[in-house]
Simulated assay, not measured.
Amino acid sequence: MTAAKLVLATRNAHKVVELREILADAGLEVDLIGADAFPEVPDVVENGTTFAANALLKAHALAKATGLPALADDSGLCVDLLGGAPGIFSARWSGGRGDRANVELLLAQLADMAAEHRAAHFACAAALVLPDGRERVAEGRLSGTLRFEPVGDGGFGYDPVFEPVGLDRTLAELPAAQKNAISHRGRALQAMVPQLRELLDAGAPDA
């Protein structure tokens, strides 16, 4: 049986690898194609006010442009003391200067806060959109606390300063398989698995 084609609405190489591993661990035979395979498709302006809205914007745009089912996700770090920020602005928190600058700015903003006041969670919304416009959304969340300095060489984004509840290591210190099993993105995609299975088995999920 030929694997179903699924285009992933991201040009982030880290996300492509992570999502491919998550889907493989779920036992799904999917021919996952990154958005880089379609350079003529412009990046989508992520002007939604929620993670789900941004994920749907990206998935709809790519499904329409390519004629293939599209999977997108939007995620971010939500810090209690900052009223849920950076939230949907997580990747742009330092004005687009990259992961390291984002982390440094966040740590500076929380520098005087004791460990018991550094609660945060990662949130993710995954969206599956078919070329005919039908859509599915699933969400995942991972709670934890923020370290005072980065630890670990794995992962990306805020992973080096985020310690999940119940662990004494940051996400950046965890093996990929362990991180994927508990991460917000992993949980959102696991919740999406039934819809993906339906797509693979029947060609397109019913509304």
Results as ranks from 00 to 15, higher is better:
Leu196Pro: 03
Asp153Gly: 08
Met113Glu: 14
Arg187Tyr: 03
Asp99Leu: 13
Arg97His: 15
Gly144Val: 07
Asp153Trp: 03
Met192His: 14
Arg141Met: 07
Ala101Pro: 03
Asn47Glu: 14
Leu71Ile: 05
Glu116Lys: 01
Leu130Ser: 08
Arg185Ser: 07
Val103Cys: 01
Val30Ala: 06
Met192Lys: 10
Ala125Tyr: 00
Leu82Arg: 06
Gly83Asn: 04
Glu104Ala: 15
Ala191Pro: 06
Met113Cys: 11
Ala63His: 10
Ala63Arg: 11
Gly95Cys: 15
Gln178Arg: 12
Arg147Cys: 12
Glu21Ile: 08
Ala63Thr: 08
Thr66Lys: 06
Gly27Thr: 04
Ala119Glu: 04
Glu149Gly: 03
Thr145Leu: 05
Gly157Trp: 07
Asp74Trp: 01
Asn47Gln: 14
Ala70Tyr: 07
Ala35Gln: 14
Arg187Lys: 05
Glu46Gln: 06
Leu77Trp: 12
Ala111Gly: 09
Thr50Ile: 00
Val17Tyr: 14
Gly76Thr: 05
Val137Phe: 00
Gly98Thr: 05
Gln195Leu: 04
Gly95Arg: 12
Leu82Pro: 12
Arg11His: 10
Phe122Ser: 07
Arg11Leu: 04
Gly83Gln: 05
Lys58Val: 02
Gly48Val: 02
Ala3Cys: 05
Val45Leu: 09
Ala177Gln: 09
Ala85Ser: 10
Leu68Ala: 11
Leu28Asn: 15
Gly98Met: 06
Ala191His: 10
Val79Leu: 00
Val103Lys: 00
Ala72Thr: 09
Phe51Asn: 13
Gly84Met: 02
Asp43Gly: 13
Asn47Ala: 12
Thr145Ser: 08
Glu21Lys: 15
Ala181Phe: 01
Ser94Phe: 02
Leu142Glu: 12
Gly155Phe: 09
Gly186Asn: 02
Glu116Asn: 07
Gly152Ser: 06
Gln178Tyr: 02
Leu23Asp: 13
Pro86His: 12
